[in-house]
Design a protein around this nucleic acid. Structure first.
Lengths: 256, 256
DNA sequence: CAATAAGTATTGTATGACAAATATGGTCAA
DNA sequence: TTGACCATATTTGTCATACAATACTTATTG
């Protein structure tokens, strides 16, 4: 263990690189909660760096809730409860394929809770400029040339909607959306037939938000999410074409 | 500016203290997004510390999304979008009385989105041990001797419910709940008449979760939240006894 | 045997030095 | 005048070394 790691991403500072390296190994399960990491000197040797750089990296990890350090003890991996899952870095490091399906499922559950409410708030509280951003994102979806552009525009659409909700606590969910749609992008294949359908559903949201119709916005978003659920089920778990999945179903009951 | 700050909390490491000091001043609006902080040497002088300690503090703030540093430029306060509002420290530093009401309102909006779904998930997916924790929290509410105990038990109740939902992304909301109920604690006066009522509403949730009745759990939680809304309105904004508040009202329509 | 002291490993802090990045202003040429 | 280029200064980034503070482990002592 602790073999000298290789390719350091250019442009990144050393302590950033070290933080990412260690962070990935924690998120990947190589170091489990309660376990004590190698000490700072050992990390320094492993990365061929000074203790200073290692310490700054460890402070970063501490700030994100991944570890806690104490003299004479060392740096101990914190219980997962403490991990800051709404941190973009932490989420990026969380690419262990192991529980990918479960995690994506968790994300969808949360989206079902949040996004209908977001759509409704956006419809009610949006400013003209915020509406404009939503419209432009929708336009981006319509004119997207490939799947990558489509996903980017889709993410932008949802983030614009969140911004329009005028609630500071909603903003952090943007990274969750990115993660969800990014993962979906990984799994899904080009399927242009779905594109027009998705466009229509997003259009319904746009229409409701434009008209300041809260309940309609909520409903349109719920429809969209339910459709996404089906897509996830099919792409990730192909053999389960139409399994009812009782818990999922009841959760979806956001009917207004 | 930059006068030597005083009382450093014993037990806390120097870089932790420095991070909190600067963090509070950023959250308090003393340094606004886009603004460039004093450089590391200046901070060192201000705190009577070494650059090392200052740098570790700044790395902490960087990890929480509050600042970004570049050579020759300095450390610049990030746009609020980047701030990690689901970080416990950031939330603690966010005690500027200025937008307190707005922020509490944002929290309530999010609770309305999340918690009914949480209650439903908990009812459907809880383990026996997780149910036990909920029951104990409820017991704690019943036997609480003063308002402080009541609030603590109330927080524990909601966090237990979140744990029972078995969704990793839900856990971070615990700190939001703490903040909300803590603030409520600051504003509210002892009102024992409300206590029995609150107990009853929590009891309805307990009953539904015990019976694995998802929809009932959702509904009970919605009732509780609506009541909390009224409490907040009255305690914070006493003259607005029964103002309809159209946006709020429609959001509350989580009727199943 | 229990309480206390000494030893020791690890993080915390300080200091000084140099490297790397980059905004700023000045120089020179077209 | 204007534009490209270059030198300079400022700030963060990294390094090396030393010592302090903390808290676990072991030895010592009553």
């Amino acid at each position: 263990m602790l073999e000298k790691t290789t390719k350091r991403k250019a442009n990144a500072n050393l302590h950033v690189y070290i933080a990412r390296s260690i962070g990935e190994r924690i998120l990947g399960g190589e170091f489990v909660p309660g376990e004590i990491l190698p000490n700072e000197a050992q990390w320094g040797k492993a990365f061929g760096s000074s203790r200073t750089a290692v310490r700054e990296a460890l402070k970063t990890l501490t700030a994100k809730g991944l570890i806690a350090s104490r003299p004479k003890i060392g740096s101990r991996v914190q219980p997962k409860i403490q991990w800051n899952l709404f941190d973009r870095d932490v989420l990026d490091w969380h690419h262990a394929a192991a529980d990918r399906h479960d995690f994506l499922n968790s994300i969808q559950e949360v989206r079902h809770m949040i996004e209908p409410g977001v759509a409704e708030l956006a419809a009610l509280k949006r400013s003209p400029a915020q509406l404009e951003r939503v419209l432009q994102a929708w336009n981006g979806m319509k004119t997207a040339k490939n799947l990558e552009h489509t996903v980017a525009a889709d993410v932008e659409f949802h983030e614009a909607l969140m911004a329009a909700a005028n609630n500071a606590l909603i903003v952090p969910f943007g990274i969750i959306i990115e993660k969800a749609l990014g993962n979906l992008f990984d799994f899904t294949t080009q399927r242009n037939d779905r594109h027009t359908e998705a466009l229509k559903m997003h259009g319904a949201i746009v229409k409701a938000v434009t008209a300041r119709n809260g309940p309609a916005a909520r409903k349109a978003m719920t429809v969209l999410l339910n459709d996404t659920d089906r897509l996830i089920e099919v792409t990730i778990n192909p053999q389960a074409k139409a399994k009812p999945k009782t818990p999922k179903k009841t959760i979806q009951s956001d009917r207004t």
